[in-house]
Design a protein around this nucleic acid. Structure first.
Lengths: 356, 356
DNA sequence: TTGAAAGCGATACCAG
DNA sequence: CTGGTATCGCTTTCAA
């Protein structure tokens, strides 16, 4: 019905040409006399004019839209990541097309192709698997892109410092005095879990009690089963390499009647808000910073980079009494160096004897 | 920048006109001879032609894009909802622009305006507050739209049957024999929580032990504090009106050393995958169905409707032994406790018939 | 500084 | 059935 005013209407009302209106709108490429500019501005909001993005996209070859593909939007980590990226994009005046790949390589490729077809200005990809094919697709489309949460080779990427994060998580556990520590992750693999796992192995004060491999698509379930097995043994603490793994451990511990931070030390890497809520200590992803960096990488051509992650201690590792945590939201516990001296589990509660 | 082939290139190679190519592409509006059609098809994939969506959008006034605004993308419920909607949209050949409003009315409006400007074909809105202003905005933009997860007045909406869900959740608790039951929600309010709360009050066999109001923006925290208080008293079971509330209860129960399903009955409404993993019994949202219905509502003009929710029992209400749950994913049946510690609830009765 | 006008690529009318 | 061609709204060159 009311088709909405076009740039011609604005030009007419301002007594000028569409070209000038365009110059005002885009602040270029030609200068406009202040007075003319004012008239145009007045006409614009007198008419309530909104530029037609489709027309602009066709002509200027820019859509003002970014595309993001994540392995699974419903997983807490990727949900938080997506929100951070959407926020960063919105702050830069861009919209975000989101695709969830359901951990399926074929679906991921379809989503990417859809983004290419949609003429997004750039693509952010959190790959579920080896992104080689995806990168090739993006490269052929000559689309600016950046990998998030997973980097590979020389492709631009923004991710946490996973190796360091794993190291610090494990070191923190060692700092508590836990000696029989198991690591849940994957020793191989050039992905976050692999890196964190290797970091954890390096960060432990002694040899690990066990290293358990968990597949990529059912982290929780694998971790749950692994933890259930481990809890039947002498394990004192578990270093999970993602909050998903940690969720599995939390469940297993609950079923085994072990209280986290008291009967079992647990720490992880990711730092989702959900884990936080469950009292999970974790080396935490700075989602907002990561989002800003990723958007900046594609929009400004800023180089990819690894963002530092920070240790946040809560009750699961034993740093804070489970019921005291919420009452003392004060200064966070210091870095690993001082952990052992600061909070040592009071009376290192006796762990269940093996086989009981 | 290799510009990529256009419809003219296809027409040239097929020895026909751009009009005919367009007819083939869109399967209309004019018929095309089978043989010509074949030549066009051949040219299309010989050239690897992809239609320019921006041009199509300008000309046809359709972008093939839907817009969604949710209160907070990082919350598990909305993350799952968003994934379901994205899935439904993708299956219908549409892309999805997502906006997270951060529970802020102003931000929500900005997001909606951005979607209007982006010329999305329709908007799906999960409002955080009274959507009157938002609906007015959408109406003035003459944009097809549908409310999801919250309905109001005559505006088209797709949502779960919240009143019934609350009623069934509470009735299930009563069916277990719990008599001192508290409800966490809000007795007032024309939103899911309000409806579920009123439904719960109606579904209880007797008067509630307590009804606790929880604010909309910090459900978990409010529920946690409320549950902590309640657990100091004689409460036997808690009916949470969302999984967020339930998370607060889960935490409070853990800190109080109460085992869910044994020392405290808990049920909620929402049915997120996360709650499921924590053993939370819940009247569950059929996300996929809801997504399909919502997308259908705006794309086909299908009427809004309420989708039925289904009770899924797990360990938190006492239906399944906490450690048995994972081992038998079959039909859920209440069991007699195998050890005395589970017998805190009165008379383990049978489940209410499904859908009662 | 300003403005007339040439497209961007696809759609669909109207003749043929 | 097929094919010129006007048009969608905006950007930007080129001339004034």
């Amino acid at each position: 019905m009311s088709k909405g005013p076009t740039i011609r209407d604005v030009a007419a009302r301002a007594g000028t040409s569409t070209a000038v209106v365009s110059y005002v709108l885009n602040d270029g490429p030609r200068p406009v006399a202040p007075e003319t500019r004012a008239r145009v501005r007045a006409a614009i909001d007198a008419l309530g004019y909104r530029p037609n993005r489709s027309a602009r996209a066709l002509r200027a070859n820019r859509t003002g839209t970014l595309g993001l593909v994540v392995p699974d939007l419903a997983k807490p980590f990727f949900a938080e990541l997506t929100r951070a990226i959407e926020d960063a994009a919105f702050a830069r005046g861009h919209r975000l097309l989101v695709g969830s790949a359901q951990f399926d390589a074929g679906h991921e490729e379809q989503q990417l192709q859809a983004l290419v077809d949609a003429h997004v200005d750039a693509v952010l990809l959190a790959p579920a698997h080896d992104p080689a094919a995806a990168l090739e697709l993006l490269r052929r489309a000559e689309l600016p892109h950046v990998l998030v949460h997973r980097t590979v080779g020389a492709a631009p990427g923004v991710a946490g410092d996973d190796l360091d994060a794993g190291r610090r998580a494990a070191a923190h556990l060692s700092g508590h005095g836990y000696r029989r520590v198991a690591v849940l992750g994957a020793a191989e693999g050039d992905d976050p879990v692999g890196r964190r796992t290797r970091g954890a192995l390096a960060g432990l004060a002694g040899p690990p009690d066990a290293v358990v491999e968990c597949a990529f698509t059912d982290l929780r379930g694998d971790a749950y089963r692994a933890a259930t097995r481990l809890l039947a043994g002498p394990v004192e603490a578990i270093c999970a390499t993602t909050d998903e793994h940690a969720l599995g451990v939390i469940r297993a511990a609950a079923e085994a009647g072990r209280v986290l931070g008291t009967d079992l030390g647990l720490i992880s890497v990711d730092g989702t808000e959900l884990g936080a809520y469950l009292g999970l200590s974790a080396v935490t992803t700075p989602f907002a910073e990561l989002g800003v960096a990723a958007v900046g990488a594609v929009l400004d051509g800023a180089p990819g980079r690894t963002v530092p992650m920070t240790l946040v201690t809560r009750s699961s590792c034993g740093c804070v009494a489970p019921d005291a945590e919420r009452k003392r939201p004060g200064p966070r516990v210091p870095e690993e160096g001082r952990d052992a001296s600061r909070v040592r589990r009071k009376e290192p509660r006796s762990l269940p004897p093996p086989g009981s």
